[in-house]
Design a protein around this nucleic acid. Structure first.
Lengths: 276, 276
DNA sequence: CGGCACTTTGACAGTCATCAATTACGGTGG
DNA sequence: CCACCGTAATTGATGACTGTCAAAGTGCCG
């Protein structure tokens, strides 16, 4: 990539990886032996992009995944009428571009919401690395599978929740993700525009604005431009969970009677292959 | 798995794999050399489940992916209030359970919509197989990535489309998937209930019913119970594409001016790592 | 034949999208 | 330093789409 005005390539990448706060969970990390694969140098590189700069555009030929090191990124699809549908926001440590694996071209676009540090993970060598490192493969699989889970959770939220509940869920989600970065869970920043939030939550811009105002007048949050202070994490959580609750993963769901055939109720376990 | 009344284990799996119509794209398939990995026998096994039988339930410990060989399957999340949010329908050749990779327990439930043939792909040996077979890994990655793409497309459809447009999209989607199986694209069957469709499309049951009736009175489709005949694929496609169009992947999107900083407009390409 | 679940149809209201206009903010240029 | 401009955000009024409640109709299988 050219060293244009708004993109800076990190010079000493090697050193940068070791000091990276996300090195512990990095896809390209060492395997359990502790040695770093020699191919790493060809896999990863970092750079800095300014707000509004695209990391890739829909239609560009796919060749890499990307990880946010600092700042924030949004991904979106472009509709024929010109406006965009936001498909995700990515905070430091999160990987985007996963939807374009095994396609010729990127199926979505990615743009920096702020001045951001971005790690490039070239896919071809990454794939080779997966062959030699079970740990790397497991990590990549985990990211892919996790992305599917997130989509499905969003599905639930958008399906049966009101505008207020969606916003509460969104704020709680950002809060949770920011707190895993060591930041305060009650002091969150929203680098994206209201339009972006609306697109993501399937709400009109005006509704987003109104909901934020409403939550503020209820004393649940305090909004100041792109800075939101959650005054009652408890209330916000209850609001996000109300009506259509997303049961936490790993918890046994209540076993209701099979909705179809009665004679299926004796099917106690799930399918297991017979051992030949 | 026990040979209970509604689950039949295929005896001669080995033979079954060779005669399987999906063998060409099977995850467990031979590598390019043409030889079948010796570990395959421990990876895959088939069985038949009756309508209403669960393949797995949310909370069950994760140990396998599943492929539909015949029939149909739906996956859903269970809300705390008891009703379910459908997250996907799966036709022959399609794989489900992908959202639970790298988690202890399944995060969703899967139930047969019809008497269905199901292939069990034990994950632990599958993962080992991925280490030795680049082709298998690429296939699994492709399935995972493709699932993410589908979720994102659904996102768009549900975000900015009316009830009629959603239904048109849904019918076109089923039509397309059925036609890749060699079936007629205009004669589709809907093994799921209206409630399921509504859950998936984020519509009330009544709305689903009304929309189907409306499309029928418009002469676009002809509904008879769970059998739908598409009388005008053209009109249905136009309806599905209207207003919020999902631009096909691989097509260059119009390059609009960057919505943020003006000085980002000269960023022509996407980020590429510098070659050290 | 009868019970049951699914589907359809109708009436009504509510939430949210749309249209419109004002306000606030941030960067630019004088 | 301040005024200016464009974009983003807010607020208000209105209406439509769709969810909800209710009830009748249909098909399926015991």
């Amino acid at each position: 990539m050219r060293n244009s005005s708004n993109v800076v390539t990190l010079k000493d990448r090697q050193q940068n990886c070791e000091s990276c706060r996300f090195y512990r969970d990095c896809l390209v990390k060492t395997d359990s032996s502790g040695r770093r694969p020699g191919s790493q140098a060809t896999v990863v590189s970092g750079c800095v992009v300014r707000r509004g700069a695209h990391i890739f555009r829909m239609g560009d030929s796919f060749d890499a995944l990307y990880m946010v090191r600092s700042g924030a990124v949004k991904t979106y699809w472009l509709a024929s009428n010109g406006d965009q549908q936001v498909t995700g926001f990515y905070l430091p440590g999160e990987i985007f571009g996963l939807d374009s694996i095994s396609t010729e071209n990127y199926v979505s676009s990615a743009v920096a919401l702020d001045t951001s540090g971005i790690c490039t993970l070239l896919y071809a060598p990454l794939r080779r690395l997966c062959q030699s490192s079970a740990e790397t493969m497991a990590r990549l699989m985990g990211r892919l599978s996790g992305r599917i889970r997130e989509s499905e959770e969003a599905f639930i939220v958008l399906g049966h929740k009101s505008a207020d509940e969606r916003m509460a869920w969104f704020l709680m989600d950002i809060s949770r993700r920011q707190s895993t970065l060591g930041l305060s869970p009650s002091e969150i920043s929203l680098p994206m525009t209201r339009t972006d939030i609306g697109s993501y939550l399937m709400l009109a811009v005006e509704t987003v604005s109104r909901v934020l105002t409403r939550l503020q007048s209820n004393g649940i949050i305090q909004v100041r431009r792109n800075q939101v202070r959650i005054k009652s994490l408890d209330k916000l959580a209850r609001l996000a969970e109300s009506s259509a609750n997303t049961a936490p993963a790993g918890v046994h769901a209540p076993r209701r009677a099979a909705p179809y055939w009665g004679d299926c109720r004796d099917l106690t376990g799930h399918l297991r292959p017979t051992t030949h």
